[in-house]
Amino acid sequence: MGELNLYGVYVPILLIQSILAYFLLQIVMMATDRLVDQEWIAWPSIFNLCLYVVLIFLLHGLFILCGI
């Protein structure tokens, strides 16, 4: 992938993807908290970790398709 040069500071693209995935996870967790309260999700911490990994993969694929 590479880096992004911001005023002489090289920022890895994976770091940007991880931060965006974290913010998306916080938004999605607002919706899934209701399912956790109703006990539809057995292990919420493992579910949230898997959801975070899926969001990183989706953002990575989006970055590749856009050519960033």
Results as ranks from 00 to 15, higher is better:
Met1Val: 09
Met1Ile: 08
Gly2Val: 12
Gly2Phe: 12
Gly2Met: 13
Glu3Asn: 07
Leu4Ile: 15
Asn5Asp: 15
Tyr7Met: 09
Tyr7Glu: 14
Gly8Met: 06
Gly8Val: 10
Gly8Trp: 06
Gly8Ile: 12
Val9Ala: 11
Tyr10Leu: 14
Val11Trp: 14
Val11Ile: 15
Pro12Asp: 04
Ile13Gly: 02
Leu14Cys: 01
Leu14Gln: 05
Leu15His: 09
Ile16Ala: 01
Gln17Thr: 05
Gln17Tyr: 01
Ser18Pro: 03
Ser18Lys: 09
Ile19Val: 14
Leu20Lys: 04
Ala21Val: 04
Ala21Trp: 04
Ala21Leu: 01
Tyr22Ile: 02
Phe23Pro: 00
Leu24Tyr: 01
Leu24Pro: 00
Gln26Gly: 12
Ile27Gly: 03
Met30Trp: 05
Met30Arg: 03
Thr32His: 01
Thr32Ala: 00
Asp33Val: 03
Arg34Asp: 03
Arg34Leu: 02
Leu35His: 05
Val36Ser: 07
Val36Thr: 11
Val36Asp: 00
Asp37Gln: 08
Asp37Lys: 03
Asp37Pro: 00
Trp40Gly: 05
Ile41Trp: 00
Ile41Gly: 03
Ile41Met: 02
Ala42Asn: 14
Ala42Lys: 15
Pro44Ala: 12
Pro44Met: 06
Ser45Thr: 06
Ser45Leu: 04
Ser45Tyr: 10
Ser45Gln: 14
Ile46Asp: 11
Ile46Leu: 14
Ile46Pro: 00
Leu49Asp: 05
Leu51Pro: 02
Tyr52Asn: 04
Val53Ala: 13
Val54Asp: 08
Leu55Gln: 13
Leu55His: 11
Phe57Met: 12
Phe57Trp: 09
Leu58Arg: 10
His60Arg: 11
Gly61Thr: 10
Gly61His: 13
Leu62Phe: 15
Leu62Ile: 14
Phe63Asn: 05
Leu65Cys: 09
Gly67Met: 13
Gly67Phe: 13
Gly67Leu: 13
